[in-house]
């Protein structure tokens, strides 16, 4: 549905997007992940025909963004980074205006406005001036305008930014509900968001494509070097943490062990293992040493870690080659 080939954007001397290529299949939700300034917004602006690429190209629903922008625009719903709202308009009036702009009219327009108001939970601010809405509501109205014409492709730039937790979940559900009929590409810095909503991830950093894979593959890949948190205790109270660290480091597969936190006589150690699962070994070693294994859990993999790991791996790979 979306096909990006060697897409490049240069601002003056600054290469914002550097030869990016990826594909998105129909009906998929793709998470577009990257730190600040990675080039997510720039890529999305090129996909939505807001600005032309410096070189390379992209097709959306089979239409080229440079050759047939009008056809592309008809099929895309776009939520920019800051919702494009006119402060002097009321919500309902604004949605009607956008609907007209996207080619709707008459009874259908009215139906769609009612539908998106309901779907994006903006019914109760329908007669309010957009300039007076809170950030979260502005975001919701932005989402409502993106889906008003029931587009094949949705491009959402940080759709959950500024929403409250309940609304974040509702928005994620909404987005998931839209998948299937719609192909969705959404940008975010939040990894759990990608894990919850997306099937596919495209990661970019400093304008370069770092990884494109399914969410599950990527998680496994990131956890290739696993980080575990182990809480070790003892019935008689005192555990010598140095002894525990030494013992943990002796376990085959463990690359590093260190004391992470201490709460009274509760000691939490962080254990990094290179590959595969060493949990069994770990548990056995602790118990055999006569200590209690109070807790053993994987350290949450943060976006940063995935990033560091992936970008690090790429760099190492390049260095080796």
């Amino acid at each position: 549905m979306i096909s990006v080939k060697q897409l490049t954007k240069k601002y003056a001397r600054n290469l914002a997007v550097d030869h990016i290529s990826f594909e998105v299949q129909k009906g998929q939700i793709v998470g577009f992940l990257g730190p600040n300034g990675a080039g997510k917004t720039t890529t999305m602006r090129m996909l939505t025909c807001f600005m032309p690429p410096t070189s390379g190209g992209a097709t959306v629903a089979g239409f080229d963004v440079l050759e047939q922008p009008l056809e592309v625009k008809k099929r895309i719903g776009y939520l920019p980074e800051s919702p494009p709202l006119y402060p002097e308009m009321e919500t309902g009036e604004y949605l009607t205006f956008v609907g007209r702009l996207k080619g709707l009219s008459g009874a259908e327009l009215k139906k769609r406005v009612d539908y998106v108001c309901d779907r994006c939970a903006v019914e109760d601010v329908r007669n309010k001036l957009l300039g007076r809405l809170s950030k979260g509501y502005r975001q919701r109205v932005g989402l409502a305008q993106a889906i008003i014409h029931n587009p094949d492709v949705l491009v959402l730039d940080e759709p959950t930014a500024g929403l409250d937790p309940k609304q974040i979940n509702e928005t994620r559900d909404l987005i998931k509900g839209l998948a299937g009929d719609h192909t969705i590409i959404l940008s975010t810095h939040i990894l759990p968001e990608v894990e919850q909503t997306c099937e596919q991830v495209v990661i970019i950093s400093k304008g370069k494509l770092v990884a494109t894979d399914s969410v599950t593959n990527l998680q496994n890949r990131a956890r290739g070097a696993e980080s575990l948190l182990v809480e070790v205790g003892s019935r008689d109270g005192a555990v010598d943490s140095a002894v525990v660290v030494t013992r943990l480091q002796q376990i085959p597969g463990v690359s590093r062990a260190q004391l992470k936190t201490t709460h009274g006589d509760r000691n939490v150690f962080e254990v990094e293992s290179q590959k595969g699962f060493v949990r069994g070994e770990l548990a056995r070693a602790v118990v055999q040493a006569g200590w209690d294994l109070n807790e053993l859990r994987p350290a949450a993999v943060s976006l940063e870690e995935i990033f560091l790991q992936l970008t690090g791996a790429e760099a190492a790979g390049k260095g080796a080659a």
Binding site: R45, C49, E81, P84, Y86, K102
Partner: peptide, 14 residues
Amino acid sequence: RSGTIELLVTSPVR
């Protein structure tokens, strides 16, 4: 300034 130009330009309007 307000970014609404993004809406206009990405709508199917010349």
